[in-house]
Nucleic acid binder design. Structure first.
Length: 563
DNA sequence: GCCGTTTTCGGCCCGACTGTTTTCAGTCG
């Protein structure tokens, strides 16, 4: 049973409750439960087995009973009843910005709208003129056109690039803006771009940005725009002495903000985007800096990457936040590919670039022979590659190039290079690139068998997810982590922006279990070596400290760890 | 529906913007 499967059902329940106009706090309760189940780092079925569902935060008798019913019978009667009550059309209509649950429900129930196309028809033939005013009618038609080209969440680098172009454009106009939201939290994917400006002229200037295709709303405190690539930009106007409060509010996450506001309430304060105030007197307590607000709430400063309401607030109140891995503190990179297999650069080019980045060492880890499409190396070619590496090491000393391999796990869990041969490598990573269609149980067995091979240092991108393209394998990550712990095998945080595998939830779990992680670029060209910063994001969002990350070690320490 | 070093009942974050609103509901972040 996948936690996300249960979480999706709880989210769907919340959505349907919204449509029927249920008490909004009940809706919030389902959403919170869904989130907590999604972020759980143990299998919900195991929790259920031990009768601990109601001990989970946000899950009480009611929701526990529904989860129990689902695990036992595969259905939730309560949800089924809701499904009968709310037409699928209402859910579809809610995808149109500006149409919320109440409007969607009314449209389907009172006006017989079947889907998005029939809504457009009804608006165009005038049969909804009594329901919508002219402005809304026009807006909805335009939104429906948009929705077909609407982009899903984008990867962080893409969002950073768009945000960067906005920052540059406004800078040229003499206006400084700060990017907040999920970009500041360094989330793997970004939905829209949130920016803060101290100058209200930012709104006027942005409406003239060559890539702005539409102004969604525009007031004195905030405005929203749609760019020609479909990306939404929300701008918030702040004052310098309120900047801390605005940053806090606009960085989110929403759940973190809500939790923080509850802490404020419990201390007799009120927190909003203008500042932290004394509830009774209205007196301002703090607003200029985030640090000041956290301090006034009696807690440690919380880095943006941690602001997801995953326990960081309790930890900050108790003064036990982790000493997060610093960006740029890696001393080497243990996975990259060259022209020998499927990379685009030579070993020397990779090494020189890595040296420029300030590394002490890298490992060249080209694919092994059964990765045919990737031009994997057989034993003879590795022997020849090592000669090249030896020569380069003499030339570049003390910078060190380690002899590595990303060795293929075959369908039966064996590796495609013999143990004796693997002994000659400095570092061995194992991964799967084929035979994905096995059952989750079989895939798990296969990985565990591979981890039992004699010389394995780390497990590469364990779930093989490609964000936005395919979800990861439903392998039993708890067992894999246990196996890694028992055998002293490290787990990779692969930094390719569309992989970021393992993710922050499991990386955190692995570290809690005492498993070491390694942040690798998996670069296929010199340009990709800097991708490690996305892996560092994952590490920080996973609460990792440098002691959890093996490639923060100096070369000598690393070699001792690898031997 | 959940939750409790003030509570097992009565709360549940807070505010901006829009429409055709003359006091507020709906939507959004």
């Amino acid at each position: 049973m996948k936690n996300s499967e249960i979480a999706d059902l709880l989210d769907r329940t919340a959505l349907l409750l919204e449509a029927v106009g249920e008490n909004r706090f009940k809706i919030v309760a389902f959403r919170r439960a869904a989130k907590n189940v999604r972020n759980l780092s143990e299998d919900i079925e195991d929790v259920w087995n031990t009768g601990g569902l109601e001990q989970l935060p946000g899950i009480g008798k009611g929701i526990a009973k529904k989860i129990d019913e689902y695990i036992r019978t595969g259905k939730i009667t309560y949800l089924q009843k809701l499904e009968n009550q709310v037409p699928q059309a209402a859910i579809d209509l809610m995808a149109i910005p500006g149409i919320g649950p109440r409007t969607a429900f009314k449209l389907t129930k009172e006006h017989g709208i079947q889907n998005i196309d029939s809504l457009r028809e009804a608006i165009q033939n005038g049969s909804l003129d009594d329901f919508f005013g002219p402005t809304i009618r026009k807006k909805i038609i335009s939104e429906i056109e948009m929705i077909k080209s609407t982009s899903k969440r984008m990867l962080l680098p893409q969002a950073e690039e768009i945000a960067g172009s906005i920052v540059e454009y406004l800078k040229a106009g003499g206006i400084h803006i700060i990017i907040a939201g999920s970009i500041r939290r360094c989330k793997a994917t970004v939905g829209d771009i949130d920016a803060i400006a101290l100058d209200e002229n930012a709104v006027e200037l942005l409406s003239k940005f060559p890539h702005t295709s539409k102004v969604l709303s525009r007031g004195t405190k905030k405005a929203s725009f749609i760019l020609d690539n479909g990306v939404q930009v929300d701008v918030r106007i702040s004052e310098k002495d309120e900047l801390g409060a605005t940053l806090l509010y606009f960085t989110g996450s929403k759940d973190h903000s809500i939790a923080l506001r509850n802490i404020a309430i419990s201390k007799g304060y009120k927190l909003n985007e203008y500042g932290l105030f004394d509830e009774s007197s209205g007196k301002l307590i703090a607003s200029g800096s985030e640090e000041g607000i956290y301090k006034a709430l009696g807690m440690q400063y919380i880095e943006p990457e941690l602001r997801e309401d995953r326990g960081e607030i309790q930890a900050a109140l108790q003064g036990r936040l982790p000493n997060l891995l610093r960006k740029g503190s890696l001393k080497g990179d243990l996975q990259m590919h060259t022209l020998w297999s499927d990379g685009l650069s030579t070993i020397e080019q990779m090494a020189r670039e890595a040296k420029l980045l300030g590394y002490e060492y890298i490992a060249i880890t080209d694919h092994s022979k059964s990765a045919r499409l990737a031009n994997g190396l057989n034993e003879d070619r590795f022997l020849r590659q090592w000669k090249e590496i030896d020569a380069l090491n003499e030339k570049m000393s003390p910078f060190t190039i380690l002899k590595g391999v990303e060795v293929e796990i075959k369908g039966d869990g064996s590796l495609d290079l013999e143990a004796d041969f693997l002994n000659s490598f400095d570092v061995v990573g194992i991964s799967m690139h084929q035979g994905y269609n096995q059952s989750p149980e079989k895939l798990t067995q296969r990985m565990i068998k591979a981890m039992g091979s004699k010389r394995v240092h780390y497990l590469c991108h364990p779930t093989n997810r490609l964000i936005g393209i395919r979800g990861g394998h439903e392998i039993n990550m708890e067992r894999i982590i246990q196996e890694a712990k028992d055998r002293g095998i490290m787990i990779e945080i692969n930094s390719q922006p569309n992989r970021l595998d393992i993710d922050e939830v499991w990386a955190r779990k692995a570290a809690e279990e005492g498993v070491d992680l390694v942040i690798n670029s998996d670069a296929h060209s010199t340009e990709e070596l800097t991708y490690v910063r996305y892996g560092e994001n994952v590490a920080r969002r996973a609460w990792l400290e440098s002691k959890n990350v093996i490639n923060t070690l100096s070369l000598n320490q690393l070699l001792r760890r690898l031997s």
